[in-house]
Amino acid sequence: MVVVDVQEGFEEVAYWGTRNNPGADGNIAALIDAWQATGRPVVFVRHDSQKPDSPLRAGQPGNAFKGYVEKRRGQGSGPELLVAKSVNSAFYGTPDLAEWLDRAGVRQIVVAGIQTNMCAETTARMAGNLGYEVFFALDATYTFDLVGPWGWQLDADGPARATAVSLHGGGFAKVVRTAELIEAAG
């Protein structure tokens, strides 16, 4: 399981705006618990933003993992990895995620975390391109309202749905629900 950017800085509403999926944090916690209880590998990814105004900058309080994630780190019986990155894909972080997964014999991953349409999606797409079988836990992700070119605006559910359709329809990942993954892990 790859837990992407579940950091305190995403709680800064004034910076990010309105989010969707208020149940995502509970689903992320449940997935981590299920993976740890069954000895499966868990990768915790932290975004170390290089933008001067970002709440996710290294050394800032917002860079820390959310409390429920931090208290779960190191609690499983399976292998665990911390990846730090400054771009969208966890595969461009340190240490090398693909190398670690390959060394562990992992060919199937679950992606959960923040933001649905940014780092979680980019990580899932790249994993698919690298030949991993990817399960994208849509209800264990969330994102924010977004403004695009020409002033086009989407509420947070719009980019989340687009991610689900693109990943699933494009063959990058199978988009699933948390309950399905927990049942399969049992």
Rank of each mutant, 00 (worst) to 15 (best):
L31P: 03
A24P: 02
F44D: 04
N27F: 00
A30D: 09
N21S: 14
A14Q: 13
A30G: 09
F44P: 01
A30K: 03
N21R: 11
A24R: 00
R19Q: 11
A14C: 08
N20S: 14
P41Y: 01
G17V: 02
A30C: 08
G17R: 05
V43K: 01
A14H: 12
P22K: 09
Y15V: 10
Y15N: 07
R40S: 11
W16P: 11
R40E: 11
N21K: 09
R40W: 07
W16N: 12
A37C: 03
A30R: 06
G23T: 06
G17I: 00
V43W: 02
G26V: 14
N27A: 07
I32A: 07
V42P: 04
A14E: 14
T18S: 15
A29F: 00
G17T: 05
A14W: 12
W16R: 11
G39P: 10
F44L: 09
A30I: 10
N20F: 12
A37V: 05
T18W: 13
R40Y: 09
V42L: 06
N21Y: 06
V42Y: 06
G23D: 15
N21L: 10
A30Y: 02
I32L: 10
V43Q: 01
P22G: 11
N20Q: 13
N27R: 02
D25K: 04
V43D: 02
